[in-house]
Amino acid sequence: MKYIDEFRDGRLAAGLARAIAREAAPGRDYAFMEFCGGHTHAIARYAVTDLLPPTVRMIHGPGCPVCVLPIGRIDMAIRLALARPDVIVCTYGDCLRVPASGGLSLLKARARGADVRMVYSPADALALAVREPAREVVFFAIGFETTTPPTALVLHAAAAQRLDNFSVLCNHVLTPAAIAAILESPEVRELGTVALDGFVGPAHVSTVIGSRPYERFAAAHRKPVVIAGFEPLDVIQAIRMLIRQVNDGRAEVENEFTRAVTRDGNRKAQALVADTFESRPSFEWRGLGAVADSALRLRPAFARWDAERKFALDDRPVPDHKACACGAILRGVRTPTDCKLFATACTPETPMGACMVSSEGACAAHYTYGRFRAAAQRTD
Rank of each mutant, 00 (worst) to 15 (best):
Tyr369Thr: 00
Val173Pro: 10
Pro70Tyr: 02
Arg162Leu: 03
Ala159Trp: 10
Asp248Lys: 15
Leu80Asn: 14
Gly210His: 03
Arg18Lys: 13
Asp50Cys: 04
Ala81Trp: 08
Ala129Phe: 12
Pro149Arg: 13
Ala362Leu: 08
Glu6Thr: 13
Ile243Pro: 03
Arg117Cys: 05
Val173His: 12
Thr175Gln: 13
Leu242Cys: 03
His39Asp: 04
Asp315Thr: 10
His172Trp: 10
Arg79Gln: 15
Phe342Cys: 09
Tyr369Arg: 01
Pro26Phe: 10
Leu313Asp: 12
Ala364Cys: 12
Asp275Ala: 15
Leu296Cys: 07
Lys322Thr: 09
Pro336Asp: 11
Phe372Ile: 03
Ile71Cys: 15
Cys363Pro: 03
Asp234Ser: 04
Phe372His: 10
Cys67Glu: 04
Thr262Trp: 08
Asp275Leu: 14
Ala157Gln: 15
Phe230Thr: 00
Pro62Asn: 13
Gly113Pro: 09
Asn165Trp: 11
Ile20Arg: 01
Glu132Thr: 10
Phe144Lys: 04
Arg84Cys: 08
Gly15Arg: 15
Arg331Gln: 07
Val66Tyr: 01
Ile43Tyr: 02
Arg304Trp: 14
Ala17Tyr: 04
Val333Ser: 08
Ala218Glu: 06
Gly103Arg: 08
Phe35Thr: 00
Ser185Pro: 09
Val89Lys: 11
Arg8Tyr: 09
Phe230His: 01
Asp248Pro: 10
Leu16Asp: 02
Ile179Lys: 02
Ala14Asp: 07
Thr49Cys: 07
Ala177Glu: 11
Ala219His: 13
Thr49Tyr: 06
Pro348Glu: 02
Ala160Ile: 03
Val138Phe: 13
Pro176Glu: 10
Phe372Asp: 03
Met76Asn: 09
Gly27Pro: 13
Gly192Lys: 14
Ala343Trp: 09
Ser105Asp: 09
Ala129Val: 12
Leu69Pro: 05
Asp380Ala: 14
Ala14Met: 07
Ile4Asn: 06
Ile182Cys: 12
Ser359Tyr: 09
Ile71His: 14
Val87Glu: 02
Met352Gln: 12
Lys2Phe: 10
Ile20Asn: 02
Gly63Arg: 03
Pro317Asp: 10
Gly287Glu: 06
Arg189His: 14
Asp264Val: 06
Gly229Thr: 01
Gly353Met: 11
Gly93Asp: 11
Val225Lys: 00
Pro176Ile: 05
Tyr369Lys: 00
Cys355Gln: 01
Cys339Ile: 09
Asp75Thr: 13
Ala17His: 05
Ala159Gln: 15
Arg117Ile: 05
Lys310Met: 11
Gly61Ile: 03
Ser359Gln: 12
Val226Asp: 00
Gly143Val: 01
Met58Asn: 01
Thr193Leu: 06
Asn247Asp: 11
Leu298Tyr: 08
Asp5Lys: 12
Glu278Leu: 08
Arg297Gly: 09
Arg299Val: 06
Val116Leu: 14
Arg250Cys: 01
Leu288Phe: 05
Glu254Gly: 04
His321Met: 11
Arg57Cys: 05
Gly332Ile: 04
Ala218Asn: 07
Gly37Gln: 09
Glu136Tyr: 07
Val56Lys: 05
